[in-house]
Nucleic acid binder design. Sequence first.
DNA 1: CAAGTATATAACGATATACTCATATATGCA
DNA 2: TGCATATATGAGTATATCGTTATATACTTG
Lengths: 105, 105
Amino acid sequence: MARTRLTPERFEQVAARFKAFGEPARLRILYALRAGERTVGELCDATGLSQANLSRHLHYMLALGLVARRKQGVFVRYSLAGPGVLRLCDVVCGQLEREARASLR
Amino acid sequence: MARTRLTPERFEQVAARFKAFGEPARLRILYALRAGERTVGELCDATGLSQANLSRHLHYMLALGLVARRKQGVFVRYSLAGPGVLRLCDVVCGQLEREARASLR
DNA sequence: CAAGTATATAACGATATACTCATATATGCA
DNA sequence: TGCATATATGAGTATATCGTTATATACTTG
C-alpha cells in the first residue's frame, strides 16, 4: 500500500471525515440514503429527525462531499455521493460485530 | 457481506468508534504508535501534546479498545490494540488521496 | 399576485469536549 | 524514609456542536 506522508493538515482532513461519521444522526441519514435518492421530507419520516436538524446535517455532509444534492422543483433530492461512502461504516460495523461475537464466547 | 441490522444503539456504537478517530490529536497518537509500543513521555515528544492531555486521550482510547496498556515500573507503555486499528485510517487517507488527485486534473 | 408547501437559515440554549494548570498517585532509588 | 520521576486526575475555562423554534427563501399553482 502506498504510504502517505501524514502532515498536520492531513490529520485535520482525516479527522474531519471521521467526525462526520461520528454522529448517530448523520449515520441514520446516510443509511436511509442507502436505498437511493430521498427528499428532505422523506428523510424526516425515515429518520425521525426534525426538518431543521436534518437540513443542517445534510448541508454539513454536502460540504464534505458525502452526499449529493439535486434540486427538482420544490423538492431537493439527496443521495450518497458515491458507493464508497458507506463502505467505511460497513467496515466498522463488521469490526464491532466481530468484537461482540468474540466477547460472547 | 453479511447485512447487519442497524439498531439505534448500533448507530451509537458505530458513531462512538468514528468519533474516537475524529480528533486530530488522537490520530497523531495512533500514528505515533504505528511503529510500536511507546511510553507516555515518548508520545509527548512524538506528538507535541501536553502530558495531561495525552493521558486523557490515551485513557479514552483504552476504554474503547483502540490501544493497549502495559505498566512497566514507573513507565506505562501503550500500543495499538490490534492491526486493524489503523486500517480504517488508511482507508480514509486513501480516499482523500484519490479525491485530491482527481480534483487536480 | 396571493397562498401553500418544501427546504434553508438565524438565533438561542444546553451539553459535550478539548485543553490547561495544579495536584495526586505510584514507582524506583539514595 | 525522603526524594525524584512518570503518569493520572480534579477543577476550571473556552469552544464547538447538537437540537429547537421561529422565520426566511424558493418554487408551484390558483
